[in-house]
């Protein structure tokens, strides 16, 4: 540690650092776990691991359908290019 000049502000900072030390670690751990889960959900199929959430994300199908239809029209395709999605 570089020996900073002793001041009241520095003392308060040190005190805060001591007290929040543990808490910050746990928050970081929580965020890391969340991140790990997110990465797994996004990329598991790319890695050849069956994605456990696709069963639930199927529920999103109706809401994405219209957007998809607009998209393929915009792109100059009259019919849906994907077999799995049958908007028209």
């Amino acid at each position: 540690m570089t020996e900073a000049k002793w001041s009241f502000k520095r003392l308060i900072e040190l005190y805060d650092e001591i007290l929040s030390h543990n808490h910050k670690t746990e928050i970081k751990r929580e965020l890391r776990d969340e991140d790990d889960l997110f990465l797994l959900l996004c990329f598991s199929e790319l890695l050849g691991i069956p994605n456990p959430v696709s069963y639930y994300t199927l529920e999103l199908y109706p809401s994405i359908l219209e957007k998809f239809h607009d998209w393929h029209l915009r792109m100059g395709m009259e019919k849906s290019p994907l077999e799995g999605i049958r908007c028209c």
Binding site: M1, L14, E17, I18, R29
Partner: peptide, 15 residues
């Protein structure tokens, strides 16, 4: 960055 973090000794002592 989580469990293994070099920490200032005053902070570590307090904790």
């Amino acid at each position: 960055g989580i469990d293994f973090v070099p920490t200032n000794r005053f902070v570590l002592w307090g904790h």
